[in-house]
């Protein structure tokens, strides 16, 4: 069987799906013989390769950089898999969607950064938050399939290792994975 090239990436996620990926333990070794991991937070490569057969995308599309990346991923991958709930439903990153970006940042980086006795309790700071060095947060965190066409969905928070393995095995065998019963939202 020819090796397939694999990329994994995380956008707005907690890396839990990648941990689950690693949790395949010794089964990982079998897999390693069949795939080339060209790009991943788990390897050193810093540039998304020109062509990959399968890309697992963890996390929601949440900021400028995610939007750019997800387009590149789609262009340069044959199969895109929405990997985990954040990629499929926006999940926990999406919980901020109910509040304006400023309020979220205020809460996360100013109020919660101060010791409890100094918290301003929702009063906006005078300086605000600057986006000079980090990507601008989008108004909402979105599931990746709202931005690009997605080929397979692997729900779960995180998806269990056996479901990941099953999905990749099926793709390797050239079959369409039937995820029914392997995992679920929130699993």
């Amino acid at each position: 069987m020819a090796k397939i090239s694999l990329a994994t990436i995380w956008l707005d996620g907690c890396s839990g799906c990648h941990m689950s990926f690693l949790d395949m333990d010794e089964r990982f070794l079998d897999l390693a013989g069949q795939v080339d991991i060209l790009f991943s937070p788990l390897v050193d490569n810093k540039v998304f390769p020109d062509h990959v057969d399968v890309t697992l995308v963890e996390g929601a599309v949440s900021n400028d950089s995610d939007k750019k990346n997800i387009a590149i991923i789609r262009q340069q991958s044959t199969i895109v898999v929405a990997f985990g709930d954040c990629a499929i439903t926006a999940n926990v990153p999406g919980m901020r969607n109910r509040y304006p970006v400023e309020a979220v940042l205020q809460r996360a980086y100013i109020e919660n950064a101060a010791p409890p006795q100094q918290r301003s309790n929702g009063q906006p700071s005078k300086e605000g938050i600057s986006f000079h060095t980090v990507p601008q947060l989008a108004r909402m965190a979105r599931p990746i399939h709202e931005c690009i066409p997605v080929d397979f969905f692997l729900p779960g928070c995180p998806p269990p290792p056996r479901a990941i393995l099953y999905l990749l095995t099926e793709i390797l065998a050239g079959r369409t994975p039937q995820m029914h019963g392997w995992t679920r939202f929130g699993a």
Partner: peptide, 16 residues
């Protein structure tokens, strides 16, 4: 969702 094989939602989430 499991029973009906819903593995993603095609419509945009409304986040009310």
């Amino acid at each position: 969702a499991v029973e009906l094989g819903v593995d993603h939602v095609r419509y945009p989430y409304l986040y009310p």
